[in-house]
Design a protein around this nucleic acid. Structure first.
Length: 941
DNA sequence: ACAACTGCGTA
DNA sequence: GTACGCAGTTGTA
């Protein structure tokens, strides 16, 4: 880079404000003014100023129509209006920008994009090096390298993600096309946010492919006839509008501006004004920087953050740029500097470092995603940001270097890993705990898990895998598994990855985990109540879940295979019958073929639509036409049988672990936003129960000889939580009386005595009770009960008049969601509702329903998690002298715990478990637990 | 081989 | 109407 060149930074203010608004939790200052977006933007601005540009402009959109609106009236018609919380932050942002000494540009009738484009090209022409700071990929069309003759370069930085594009190659790497092709690329794809439709089904890959082949949009248009398949048809349909698209996505570089780049010199900051603004919004870090009187900050934390190449972890987000990485943190930029430990001396050195560390991060590399089958291939550790090692143990490929003996290494590490006093941390450590346990190392002192920190901090903000967390909280792109091992059919086992590559990947995992913890832990601690959810519920649960998964459940494969055979025979009969009724054969598994048959050939009415507007063939649709033709019934019969067979009776026997002879599900602790667990591989939380055929599958979940299956479930737990949260006297009393709650509700609503309630009334009351917990509408209830909407409305009105506390609770919850942006459980777990202010009425209504459901579903999840921890602790103390447990916890199904129990221990277990489950929370209503006992899960209900 | 879509099992 | 995971088809890579 030319050191003497003057530099101009053009900041796309609107794009940052929106990005920061959506990326950050809804922070506010002590006066309740929203500050989240402001905080993000201010941090970005401060980082920009540290680069000391000569010229700078903060560019925002001005109100009013632009040439794009003239050309295409639908332009941006889909845009929701600015949320109020964000709007409130615009004026303060402008004040801060002014006080920082940055010129603000807002040109009426010209979009900010075009102002930036014009200034960038002018300045580059004057030999100024231009950096456009934006998160909008459209600007890639302007990128040009500097130093190739006259004029400056134009680079793109995105400080949110830390990426920088300053050459043609960088753009090609990112998008697969040259800067000059970006407009054609965007024109083909379209932009849903701006309401610019492109070629249907043409995404980044397809657009780049076509441009690689035909070079330009004109080339693609000229060869549109040559492109085959459905997508070719889609292209030909869109041909007419592509030139317009190109105009719309082209950033103009020739608008008339009153000021040139030279007018944008950076001015002196007004520190007094800044101090006042920072104080008002509570930006302590920023205040300290300008010598304000903020509270003392944590020096150690700051030092760590700086070492990690991060700035400003106070309460918002951390960021890096590629440039910073190189400058501040060689370890991050150059992954090769991690240690690969292959000698005893290196191992001794690292064991010394681990011993000296207060806490360390660890991570296992294996040859399988299934922790119950995986073989340990290597281990990585990190003690400080940037300091990490990889210990390969079982890499096996031609020319692989000699490695330390696996068992010897594990023996050497065991004292550290098994010491409860030594704090260990990981990312999704339950997996590693399994692997190490199966290799003879019982990990104790597993103190922190970044996946769970992220989940508790904000369950909905992002995914909680390490790559996403690194991107989000460190602004850092990790080495991906596929980068070192390939993917799909070409993937090689990790044991065949070259040690160099393996070290770069694996040691980075431990390193990034450690850094993430240091960013996330303070964030979590800063939010009232979250630390306790994390520390008292989620972390203790890790070991409990590991144990349940390791226990597995005994499944009688032969029984399931017999059921499969029977189901198969009945499916065949149904299929033959269907063929006969249709007069031709067709694929019963194909909704498309079935739809064509029912609605086109047989002319049956299509009463239900799929979300995409096609005639649906789902259960509701088939039921609706079952009285007009025999075929729908037969299809329903076939579907029911096929579902049971493919999903359960065929699949479960395949899932039996050959080593243990049992089925080991995997529980996802960060699976459901409400705090519930999710189960997969296989999902054991959706084993059928409602139909007789389905329920039979549960007879295959058995206890070994001498043992019993005991199933303990909470009775009506979510409804009880609704009674607790609403405090409604009638509902609380109904539960206190111990009566059948739906019957009691029906009696109340229909003005009868409990004994006089008939089946229909009870059914209606039950539907209302459940509907309420899902935030239902009269429309939904009407559909459920098969009554008119008016009638359903009357039921609801009647219900609310009898249980006014419930109505108030619903309204309070909606209000809380709107005001705070989140709702919480009894134990303080938060659920943010990102769409609660959506302009789109459907999205907003959905968020309101979720807001109502989440406190109930989430509190129930918290309660059973607490019970599991307590029960597990009790059970762990019950083992006999040889360590054999008289009972194992084997399944959790949201409100139910299932145990495998020695016959002579059943009585004790039932008493202890039901007592502990009942005592897991103190509510205004009793928590009732029902326990069943049997030789299999079906009998235990 | 992979993604989108449709449909359906549980609490 | 809340919260999930999974199987099968279809169309494309």
């Amino acid at each position: 880079m030319n050191d003497t060149a003057r530099r101009l930074v053009l900041i796309d203010g609107s794009s940052y404000l929106y990005r920061a608004f959506h990326a950050l939790p809804p922070l506010s200052n002590d006066d309740g003014e929203p500050t989240g977006a402001l905080f993000g933007v201010v941090n970005m601005l401060r980082a920009t100023l540290k680069e000391k540009p000569d010229y700078v402009a903060f560019v925002v959109d001005a109100p009013g129509k632009t040439f794009r609106d003239e050309l295409y009236p639908e332009y941006k018609a889909n845009r929701p209006p600015m949320p109020d919380e964000l709007r409130a932050q615009v004026q303060p942002m402008c004040e801060i920008v002014e006080a920082l000494g940055m010129p603000i540009l807002r040109v009426p009738g010209v979009e900010a994009d075009d102002v930036i484009g014009t200034l960038a090209v002018q300045a580059a022409g004057d030999g100024i090096d231009v950096t456009i700071s934006t998160s909008d990929k459209d600007f890639a069309q302007l990128v040009r390298p500097n130093g190739d003759g006259d004029g400056g370069g134009i680079a793109l930085v995105n400080t949110m993600s830390g990426s920088r594009m300053d050459s043609e190659q960088a753009v090609i790497d990112k998008f697969g096309v040259r800067p000059g092709q970006i407009v054609d690329y965007l024109a083909l794809m379209g932009d849903t946010v701006d309401n610019v439709p492109g070629v249907h089904k043409c995404g980044p890959k397809t657009a780049a492919k076509w441009l690689a082949e035909y070079d330009s949009l004109d080339g693609v248009i000229a060869h549109a006839g040559a492109i085959k398949g459905k997508i070719g048809d889609n292209l030909r349909e869109a041909l007419d509008r592509l030139p317009l698209n190109r105009t719309l996505v082209t950033i103009r570089t020739d608008v008339e501006l009153e000021q040139g780049p030279a007018a944008l010199a950076l001015r002196e900051a007004h520190n007094d004004a800044l101090r006042a603004l920072y104080t008002r919004y509570g930006f302590k870090q920023a205040l300290k920087e300008i010598g304000g009187t903020g509270p003392e900050q944590d020096g150690a934390q700051q030092a760590r953050a700086e070492q990690a190449g991060m700035r400003n972890t106070a309460a918002g987000y951390a960021r890096t740029t590629a440039a910073d990485d190189a400058e501040l943190d060689p370890a991050l930029a150059a992954a090769g500097s991690y240690d690969c430990v292959t000698t005893q001396a290196q191992l001794d050195d690292w064991i010394g470092r681990l011993r000296a560390a207060e806490e360390f991060a660890f991570d296992c590399e294996t040859d399988s995603l299934d922790p119950m089958r995986a073989n340990l291939v290597g281990l990585s550790f990190s003690t400080e940001p940037g300091a990490a090692c990889y210990i390969p143990l079982a890499h096996d490929y031609p020319g692989a270097p000699a490695q330390l003996d696996r068992d010897a290494v594990l023996d050497a590490l065991r004292p550290l890993l098994s010491d409860p006093q030594r704090r260990k941390l990981g990312q999704h450590g339950k997996y590693d705990l399994h692997v190490l346990r199966r290799h003879g190392v019982e990990v104790r002192g597993y103190a922190d898990d970044t996946m769970l920190e992220s989940f508790v901090y904000n369950a909905t903000a992002s995914r909680h895998d390490m790559d996403s967390l690194a991107k989000r909280y460190l602004g850092y792109d990790t080495v991906k598994y596929a980068d070192v091992a390939g993917k799909g059919a070409k993937a090689i086992p990790f044991s065949q990855v070259a040690l160099d590559d393996a070290t770069g990947y694996a040691a980075e995992d431990a390193d990034v985990t450690l850094r993430l913890h240091r960013v996330l832990a303070p964030k979590l601690a800063a939010v009232d109540g979250l630390e306790r959810v994390y520390r008292d519920i989620e972390m203790p649960l890790v070991k409990v879940l590991e144990r349940i998964e390791a226990n597995g459940v005994m499944v009688d494969g032969d029984e399931l295979r017999r059921q499969s055979a029977k189901l198969g025979r009945r499916m065949l009969a149904a299929q033959q019958k269907a063929t006969e009724l249709a007069g031709r054969s067709f694929n019963l598994d194909s909704p498309k073929q079935l739809g064509a048959l029912l609605f086109d050939e047989l002319k049956l009415p299509a009463l239900v639509k799929t979300p995409k507007g096609q005639p649906s063939t789902n259960e509701e649709a088939l039921e609706a036409i079952a009285d007009q033709h025999e075929l729908p019934r037969v299809i329903l019969e076939y579907r029911g049988l096929a579902k049971l067979r493919s999903t359960y009776t065929d699949k479960l026997p395949e899932m039996v672990n050959p080593d243990t002879g049992r089925v080991h599900t995997s529980y996802h602790q960060a699976g459901a936003a409400t705090g519930r667990l999710a189960s997969s591989d296989p999902n054991l939380q959706n084993i059928p129960i409602r139909t007789e055929d389905g329920r039979r599958i549960r007879t295959a979940f058995v206890a070994p000889p001498g043992r019993k299956i005991v199933a303990c479930d909470y009775s009506q737990i979510e409804l009880r939580i609704m009674a607790h949260l609403s405090g409604d006297e009638g509902l609380v009393n109904a539960f206190a009386s111990g009566a059948d709650i739906h019957r009691a509700t029906a009696a109340e609503v229909f003005g009868k005595t409990i004994d006089a309630v008939d089946g229909n009334e009870r059914r209606a009351a039950k539907a209302i009770n459940f509907g309420l917990m899902y935030g239902m509408s009269a429309f939904g209830l009407a559909k459920q009960l098969g009554v008119s909407r008016g009638e359903a409305q009357d039921y609801i009105a009647l219900y609310f008049s009898r249980y006014p506390g419930v109505r108030d609770f619903m309204e309070r919850t909606r209000e809380q969601a709107r005001e705070q942006g989140y709702v919480e459980t009894v134990f303080g777990r938060r659920l943010y509702l990102e769409q609660i202010h959506a302009r789109n009425q459907g999205l907003r209504a959905g968020a309101e329903r979720a807001a109502i459901n989440a406190p109930m579903q989430g509190t129930a999840a918290d309660i059973i998690k607490r019970a599991m921890i307590d029960v597990d602790a009790w059970l762990s103390g019950q083992a006999d002298g040889k360590g054999a447990a008289p009972a194992l916890m084997v399944l959790q199904v949201h409100d139910e715990l299932v145990f495998e129990v020695e016959a002579n221990f059943v009585e004790t277990l039932v008493a202890e478990v039901s007592g502990r489950m009942s005592a897991a929370a103190e509510l205004r209503v009793p928590l009732v637990v029902d326990c069943g006992i049997g030789d299999n899960w079906e009998e235990a209900h």
